[in-house]
């Protein structure tokens, strides 16, 4: 009985979370402009969606900026994580604190600060400013994804590579990067998703003629409800769902692998305290 109540509660919460999305998805197939009536099944809004040049061009901008920003942020962020991992004391603390700033700051503050910068530096608002802004808020998330992987590494791995004849750059490329690859990929995906999802920062750093999907949705939603947006929601929701499932399956496999690795060493670890420190 208690168990039933508990489960029902969770189902209610899920209903709250999913209901709006579900309603949007249903409406996206409704052949009627008015929401009160079910006018039969249609794919009309999907056709209109793909013919809508504003939406299509902002989709293109979103993907282009998301992908470019994610790749650049991943390169800079991964290198930064390696550097941070190897620095110490005040320097490390200072860098970490500044790194957290865009994560902790209200988005709108990051947004206006970048806007001021671009005006101040007389950069023309458009693709370039959007890209710079997105890279900036992505980097911390890449760093935060890669750092834990670095911390898990055997600290002698880099030295082992040098010992076997690698130059420092070679050791980084041939050993460290492959070893932390799962963290790098997580960071890349995270950065890409955050970019696609971002509205506030894009809103303040974009220029005339360049619009991301979020900005387009914002202006469309303010004008009233459009069935094409329902179709867009359905597609994006499905896309995100698939992406998340892929990421989670990957992670689960990764964890299982790690766990089996740990079990391997567990066989010997009980002896370690017994004899290792005798």
């Amino acid at each position: 009985m208690v168990r039933f109540l508990k489960r029902s509660y969770i189902y209610l919460v899920f209903a709250f979370l999913y209901m709006p999305i579900a309603v949007l998805m249903v409406y996206s197939f409704n052949d009627s402009r008015s929401r009160g009536v079910w006018g039969g099944f249609t794919l009309r809004w999907y056709v209109e969606l793909f013919q809508d040049r504003t939406i299509m061009s902002s989709l293109y901008s979103t993907l282009f900026i998301g992908a470019t920003a994610a790749v650049i942020a991943t390169i800079i962020g991964t290198l930064a994580a390696i550097g941070i991992h190897n620095s110490k004391g005040i320097q490390k603390k200072l860098i970490m604190n500044v790194t957290y700033l865009p994560v902790l700051n209200p988005e709108i503050v990051t947004a206006i600060s970048l806007m001021i910068l671009f005006v101040f530096a007389k950069v023309r608002f458009g693709y370039l400013t959007l890209l710079l802004a997105h890279i900036t808020f992505n980097i911390p998330y890449v760093i935060l994804s890669v750092l834990p992987k670095l911390r898990q590494l055997n600290k002698h791995l880099y030295e082992a590579a040098l010992d076997l004849g690698c130059t420092p750059a070679g050791a980084l490329w041939k050993v460290i990067v492959p070893e932390i690859m799962p963290g790098i990929i997580t960071g890349l995906l995270l950065a890409f998703t955050l970019s696609i999802d971002d509205f506030v920062i894009s809103f303040f750093t974009t220029g005339s003629g360049v619009s991301t999907l979020s900005i387009t949705i914002y202006s469309m939603a303010r004008q009233g409800i459009k069935p094409t947006l329902n179709a867009l929601s359905t597609i994006m929701f499905t896309f995100v769902l698939v992406l998340l499932i892929i990421v989670n399956v990957r992670q689960a496999r990764e964890e299982r692998k790690e766990r089996s690795g740990k079990n391997g060493s567990k066989k010997i670890s009980p002896y370690r305290t017994e004899f290792g420190d005798a």
Binding site: L17, P20, I21, L24, Y27, S34, Y218, L229, S233, M236
Partner: peptide, 28 residues
């Protein structure tokens, strides 16, 4: 947990927009 996270990853504006359609005069 995944089910909890999924709506969070949907575009923030679309999520908010969804409530617009739910709450409006002739909404669901």
């Amino acid at each position: 947990l995944l089910l909890f996270v999924v709506p969070m990853w949907m575009n923030f504006l679309l999520r908010t927009y969804a409530w617009l359609t739910l709450l409006e005069r002739n909404g669901a």
